[in-house]
Design a binder for these strands. Structure first.
Lengths: 350, 350
DNA sequence: AGTTACATTTGGATCGTTCTAATCAGGCAA
DNA sequence: TTGCCTGATTAGAACGATCCAAATGTAACT
C-alpha cells in the first residue's frame, strides 16, 4: 500500500483532496480532528490518507501557525552517564507531549556552545534546555539566544553577571544540602577528620558541594585542615592519581566526601593501589548515584539525583514556560537523597 | 543591539529588505553568499542583518527547497554508555556538516519505536539512523518509514525477513571476528576450558559473537561443553547473579568470553563474591571497551569498538546516501580491536 | 544613436500547511 | 415568498524562504 508512493514526490494535502474530491481545507480539518466535518466525508478522507500513505508535514504547519514542535537540548558532555540519563528523561517527556528533541553536544567548549546554539536556533525550537559548558558565560549566551526562545538552565550556573532583563528559568541540584547530608552521615558514623575530595574550584556545583561540607563540619564543631581539600578533574583517572595527596596531609583523614561518583570510584581505585580497603580502612561518599555506584567494590554510599527524573522535570518546566511565556522566571532546586551503602564505614579504630 | 528585537515578532527577510531598501530576493542572495550581489549592497545588507538581529529560518527554506537539514537518530537505550558515546559522535559529525540531530529514544520497546519513527518522520528528516529495539521487525519498520527517508541500520539486525525492495544501509560491528580474536587470545594464554558468558540468544549480536567463539574453539580443536553457554540479560546485575552457573558445569571452565563489558564486570563481581580473584584465579574478556573497562579491578581485556568513531562513521554514511540516493545499498562492517589488559591471565595451574 | 554585453536587481509564483471569511444547501418560522 | 439560522464546505491569502524569468542600469562597441 504505502509502497505505491511515487518515489521522489511526497504526498500532500492537495493530493488527498484531489483523491477524494474535497478541498484542501477540509482535509486539513480532518487531520486536526475538527468536529466541523461530516462523519461521512471524514471517513472518506481518512481512507484516502491511508491509501496514499500520507505523512503530516509539521514544518509547513509550524511555519503557517508560527508555532514550534521542538525543544533544543544542549549538553556539555553526553558521554557522561549522568547527562545521558538526563537526556533520555527529557526525550521521554517531550515525546509524550508531542515535541521532538533537537540534540546538541558542546564537549565542554564554550565556543562550540555558541555555534551549536546558533545552529539550533535556526530550526526555530520552542525552547532550550542548556547544561552549559565549563567556561560558558551569561553575556555570550544572551547575545545569541536573546529573546528568540525561552531558556532553561540546567545543572550549572553561567559565568559572568546575568543581565537582569534575561530572566531564564533554572533547574539545579541541591548540591549544598546533598554534601551536607553526606558529611553529616560520616560524622554520625564517628568520623572526625573528613576531607573534601575532587572537582574544580571554578565549577559552581563543586563550590556548592564544598560549602555543604563546610557547613556540616562547622555545625559539628569539627576542625577543617586546609590540606583536606584536594582538587582534581571530575574523572576516575585523575582522582585515582590524586589519592596520595590525602595521605600527605599533616593530619591524615579517615574519610572523604567526594565531589561525585566518578571521583569516588577513582579514589577507591587509588586506595586499593595503596593497599587500603575502601569501606573498611577508609570511608567515602559520592554524588550522583550513577549505575556503577551500586555495583562498586564495595557499593558506594552516595547522593541520588535521579537524572532520568530530572530530565522529565526539565522538559515539564520548558513546556510550562511555553504555555505561559510571561510568567515570572522560576528557580527550581531539585532535592537529592542520601543512599547509604557499604563504602561509608565507621573509622577503623572505633 | 539584538535586545531591541520586538518581543513577539521575528525578524524576516522582508524586514531586512525594507530596512535597507533592496528586494527580498537580494537579501536572500546575500545570505547564501551568492557572487551576484554587488560588494556595496552586500555590506549594507549584512550590516542591517546584524542590526536587526536576524536569524535564518531553516524550516521555511527547507519547505521551499524541498530539502532537509536534519537527521533522525533513534536509539534503543541512551542510558547505555556505548550508545551515549555513539550519539555524541553522530551529533559531532552531523553538526560539522550543518545538520541537526533529531533524537528519539525507544527504551527497547518496538511499540515506542513505531511511534517515535512516525513522529520524527513528520519533521521531515533527510535520513534516519536506527539502532533497533530488541524485538523490532523489518516489516513494521518498513510500513512506517517506506521510502520517505533513507535508513541506516546500526548495531543490530531487524527481526523478520527483509523485503527485498527495502534496500537499507547497514553499519554493524564485526562481532564474530571480535569474539574469535578474544577466544584465540585466551587459547594462546593456555586456556582449554573456555565458556561463553551472557547475552540473549535472540539478539543478533550475541549470536554472532557466540559464532566467533565457536569458530576459534573448533579451529583449536577444543571441546565445547553445552553447559558452557550461559545466558543472562546484558547487565552487570544479572551477570553477577548468574556467575554460579559457570561452576555448576560438569567440567568447570578456567576462562570465559563475555558477551560485553557490562556482563564481564558483573561476572568479576560475582567471582569476587565467591572468593575468586578475576585476572588471577579466573580469566575473562569483555566486548565494547567502555570507559570503566580500563579502570576495573583488574583492568579488563576487551574488544574496542570505538563508539564515538562509529557515530561519526554512521553520520558520514547517511550523508553520503543523501548525496547519492540511488547508489546501491551498503553493508559496512566496522573492525574491532583486541585490547589486552590484566583480566586475561593464564590458567592458574600453568 | 543603436545595439550588444554584462553585471545587478527584482516581482511574483511556489513549497505544504492553516486561517478567515465567505459560500452553499437545506430546514423552519413568519 | 422571504428571511434567518445551522451545519458543512471552500477559495484565497497568509507564513518565510527560494527560484525563475524578466527587468534594470551601465559601459562598450559599432
Amino acid at each position: 500500500m504505502s509502497s505505491h508512493t511515487p518515489i521522489g514526490r511526497k504526498v500532500t494535502l492537495n493530493d488527498i483532496a484531489a483523491g477524494c474530491d474535497v478541498s484542501r481545507a477540509t482535509v486539513s480539518l480532518v487531520l486536526r480532528g475538527s468536529p466541523l466535518v461530516h462523519k461521512l466525508t471524514r471517513a472518506r478522507v481518512e481512507e484516502e490518507l491511508r491509501r496514499q500513505g500520507y505523512v503530516y508535514n509539521r514544518a509547513a504547519a509550524n511555519l503557517r501557525r508560527r508555532s514550534s514542535s521542538s525543544i533544543a537540548l544542549i549538553l556539555n558532555d553526553l558521554a557522561n552517564p549522568f547527562f545521558a540519563e538526563f537526556a533520555a528523561g527529557v526525550d521521554e517527556a517531550l515525546g509524550a507531549a508531542g515535541f521532538v528533541t533537537l540534540l546538541g553536544c558542546t564537549g565542554e567548549s564554550a565556543e562550540r556552545e555558541q555555534a551549536v546554539l546558533g545552529s539550533l536556533l535556526e530550526h526555530g525550537p520552542g525552547g532550550i534546555i542548556l547544561s552549559p559548558a565549563e567556561h560558558s558565560n551569561a553575556h555570550d549566551v544572551l547575545a545569541v539566544v536573546g529573546k528568540r526562545a525561552p531558556l532553561l538552565l540546567f545543572n550549572r550556573e553561567l559565568g559572568g553577571a546575568l543581565p537582569e532583563f534575561a530572566h531564564w528559568d533554572q533547574l539545579m541540584l541541591d548540591n549544598q544540602r546533598g554534601a551536607r547530608l553526606a558529611t553529616e552521615h560520616l560524622i554520625a558514623r564517628g568520623h572526625q577528620r573528613i576531607a573534601f575530595f575532587g572537582g574544580h574550584q571554578d565549577s559552581s556545583s563543586c563550590r556548592q558541594r564544598h560549602a555543604g561540607y563546610v557547613e556540616a563540619m562547622r555545625a559539628a564543631k569539627l576542625r577543617i585542615e586546609p590540606d583536606w581539600r584536594i582538587e582534581c578533574a571530575p574523572t576516575r583517572l585523575d582522582a585515582a592519581h590524586r589519592t596520595s595527596a590525602l595521605f600527605d596531609a599533616t593530619h591524615v583523614p579517615t574519610a572523604a566526601v567526594c565531589y561525585n561518583d566518578a571521583v569516588a570510584l577513582g579514589l577507591m581505585l587509588g586506595l586499593h593501589q595503596r593497599g587500603l580497603r575502601p569501606g573498611r580502612d577508609f570511608a567515602l561518599t559520592g554524588f550522583d548515584d550513577i549505575a556503577e555506584a551500586a555495583l562498586g567494590m564495595p557499593p558506594l554510599t552516595t547522593m541520588s539525583t535521579a537524572p532520568h527524573e530530572r530530565g522529565r522535570q526539565a522538559a515539564q518546566l520548558v513546556l510550562q514556560r511555553l504555555q505561559q511565556p510571561q510568567a515570572a522566571s522560576r528557580q527550581t532546586i531539585a532535592p537529592v537523597q542520601l543512599v547509604v551503602r557499604e563504602s561509608s564505614c565507621p573509622p577503623p579504630n572505633a
